[in-house]
Amino acid sequence: MTRAMAAPASPHAAPLRLGFLGVGWIGRHRMEAVLASGLAEACAVCDPSPDMVSSARALSPTAFAAGSLDDLIDARPDGIVIATPSALHAAQAIRALEAGIAVFCQKPLARTGAEVAAVIDAARAANRPLGIDLSYRHAEAMRLVRAHIRAGEIGTVYAVDLTFHNAYGPDKPWFYDMALAGGGCVMDLGVHLVDLLLWTLDFVPVEAVSADLYRGGRRLRRPADEVEDYAVVTLGLETGAVARLACSWGLNAGRDAVIEAIFHGTSGALSLANVAGSFFDFTAELRRGTQRQVLAGPPDDWGGRAIVAWADRLAAGGGFDPDTANHRAVAGVLDRIYGR
């Protein structure tokens, strides 16, 4: 039996050994979170920037500086955490999974639905946990919104308003290259909105997609050969509900960010909203008519919970999680937004 096809390991008495591929700001933040959990230690880090490697090794001085993904794999870690440009995700994740190593990957998992499906198939074949950093699922405010909807607190959901405007936009050039990024603000920010919609509503099928994409105020053709910085999308769900999605980079928002998810039901509404332009502080509210009840608010240190949940499954000896396959639906919606 090859390692790739072997059964999941028995639960760890010692911390997991993890390799980190890409240790810029987000990769280093996830590294810090999983190390702080006590579930894992870093055995190796890899990044083209010596400064980034040095900063990561400051968190774990015993981790060695790997020169490549192959070097990470040769170290035989229990898992590899990927935080590299989007164009590299699929091939890197598949390479690790085929070596029998679990993977936690930054969003988007890949640029297209076909690439996403290939990664998921590799994880299933290897029977290894595949984690995707769809971190907003883990904010306590969003968890409460979903729990109240599933409990029938607002009746039947018939409309959803989803918003993510980032007043700055990415600072890395590759984000603005369609071949490297696979898309613009929808791929970067909209993926969270589509995921929260489908995850909250039990992955109800999306029957219709209408999208308008813009770059610098100019409407783009679909499929576009350049990335968008503003998008407005309407999704028609199988239930008859409708979702409206808007996201952008560099919008004149008057604050750092506008992030909202409002679920309108036949007997009330539930909302997630950021506080004072924050990327990290959220409230959850139950609304009925002109009344509102606050269900959750800051502080809530949720940013690293996705990787900790993945590490916990891996440490417990868990294999492939069938729920991971639902990300095919998210990727499929993004493909339709881009006209692919």
Rank of each mutant, 00 (worst) to 15 (best):
R30W: 15
L220V: 06
A126G: 11
L198Q: 13
D70A: 09
A141W: 07
Q92V: 12
A139K: 09
A63V: 00
L245H: 02
L193I: 14
Q106I: 07
T239G: 01
H148F: 07
F320P: 09
L162K: 04
S10H: 11
S37P: 13
V232E: 15
G319R: 12
V275E: 03
A36K: 06
D323A: 15
S49H: 09
L314Y: 00
P50C: 02
P173L: 15
C247P: 03
S37C: 09
I73K: 04
I94Y: 08
D177T: 15
A83L: 14
A253D: 03
L201G: 14
A257T: 05
G19E: 15
T163W: 04
G277S: 01
Q92G: 03
I94H: 08
R3N: 12
T290S: 07
V145R: 03
P48L: 11
M5D: 09
C46N: 12
F64G: 00
A122W: 01
L35M: 15
A141K: 12
A13H: 15
P129N: 10
G332C: 05
I80W: 08
Y230I: 02
I26N: 11
R128K: 08
A309M: 04
A93I: 13
V294M: 04
A261L: 07
G79I: 05
E238F: 12
G236N: 03
I101V: 13
P8H: 02
I120Q: 00
S37Y: 10
M52C: 10
L162I: 05
P108F: 06
F164P: 05
V308F: 07
G155F: 06
E32H: 15
A96S: 14
S86Q: 07
